[in-house]
Design a protein around this nucleic acid. Structure first.
Lengths: 220, 220
DNA sequence: GCACTGGATAATGTATACTTTAACGTATAC
DNA sequence: GTATACGTTAAAGTATACATTATCCAGTGC
């Protein structure tokens, strides 16, 4: 069976390099350089770069290199605007879908994991569980295209959150909000699910952008 | 100066072939076939196909060919859900942006063109002006990422609308709705701009999906 | 008749060679 | 000293050659 192709590996590797910060935001990288680095020819690099460009992670600029796009505070606002609307829509749709408690088990698990992480002050674990919750929420909304868009937006947010995770107050509110969204979905109340989640994301955006701006974290 | 590359031309050509229906939804096309057809090598075809895949217009399936993705009625609902939320958000943001009447001139022009097209019953012209209005609206919302997403979604809608344009009743309501959105933006009333546009798109979705389903137009 | 094996085939995945061209530096004219 | 023209160079764009491998079909065994 065909294992992952060189393009696939280049994609993962480049994502890894970007998220880990080894490829700094704003930095340019020639195709040849990356090809050498990943031990492949230019072809898979070019194809991977094209896909990353479509995801907004890099920008290919002829003769200047493949650029890791920096994300400003304003960009983050734009991204959150999209994320907020689409996730809230997913929440509403999930509430309309008449899920049983069993269907919502994964959501409940994510919430529990967040609580656990909070009591042990394990912020990375909290972030992971938080991602899990949002991912599940969108999945329950049953709109594959929406899921894809949201996941691209969430990648960007993740980059910024990594830089600010340890500056934040304990995210107690988030857990409460998630619990309320879960309740609304379980009770099949789309409007409440939508509104609660919307307010939650809006708040999260404010918190994040404020941190970015006060700490002068531009071009993440 | 560097004219458009082969990749650029392949992209336009393939889009043209898809939108014109020469490449039927659901049909598969080998890289070599398309390369011969467009008089280029496989390389630009592969790169173009990757970008079209990112836009959801084709699906590249190893050894089975590049497939023009068919769009079902349910797909169209999903697409409209996204479009509705994001365009409405753009409308709200546009209303918050304190634009002068001059800034809104292009919107007004689009509305006038729609009216003209309606009185002469020139439906293609109406569709074009309609696109223009929505495009302008989103531009005024000042969120580049949102603009990109919306434009991808609108491509899909365009495919379906082309098939149903002449089945519809005269789109008088649309013109009224657009006028109201324009008004709300001019009066800097984000909530009304949002809600009016939201209702408008929702209605459009219902109309379109109903046509698709009654006429059994699956896999457009 | 059916399932399985194995090889032929053809399409993709990848590397590489080649072409084109933008960017940079140098030299020259003024 | 500045600006323009020109040549060099290196990077991307493209074609192509090659390697890999899924698919199909014929043949075999049962």
């Amino acid at each position: 069976m065909g294992g992952p192709s060189h393009v696939d590996r280049a994609l993962s590797a480049l994502r890894q390099l970007i998220f880990s910060g080894e490829l700094l935001p704003g930095s340019d990288h020639l195709e040849t350089e990356l090809a050498t680095r990943l031990n492949v020819s230019r072809t898979p690099i070019r194809e991977a770069a094209l896909q990353l460009q479509a995801q907004g992670l890099v920008e290919v600029r002829p003769r200047r290199g493949i650029r890791v796009v920096p994300v400003s505070a304003q960009d983050m606002r734009d991204i959150y605007d999209i994320l907020t609307e689409l996730e809230s829509l997913a929440a509403a749709r999930a509430a309309q879908a008449c899920y049983s408690k069993q269907d919502l088990a994964t959501l409940a698990t994510a919430i529990r994991d967040m609580d656990d992480a909070l009591t042990t002050s394990d912020l990375p674990a909290w972030a992971k569980a938080d991602d899990q919750f949002h991912h599940e929420l969108v999945r329950l909304g049953r709109n594959a295209r929406l899921g894809q868009i949201v996941s691209v937006m969430r990648d960007q947010v993740r980059r910024a959150r990594a830089a600010t995770l340890f500056m934040r107050p304990k995210p107690t509110q988030s857990n409460t909000a998630h619990r309320n969204v879960y309740q609304a979905i379980a009770e099949r109340d789309p409007v409440r699910a939508h509104d609660v989640h919307h307010a939650h994301r809006r708040q999260a955006c404010e918190t994040l952008v404020e941190l970015l701006e006060t700490h002068r974290l531009h071009g993440l």
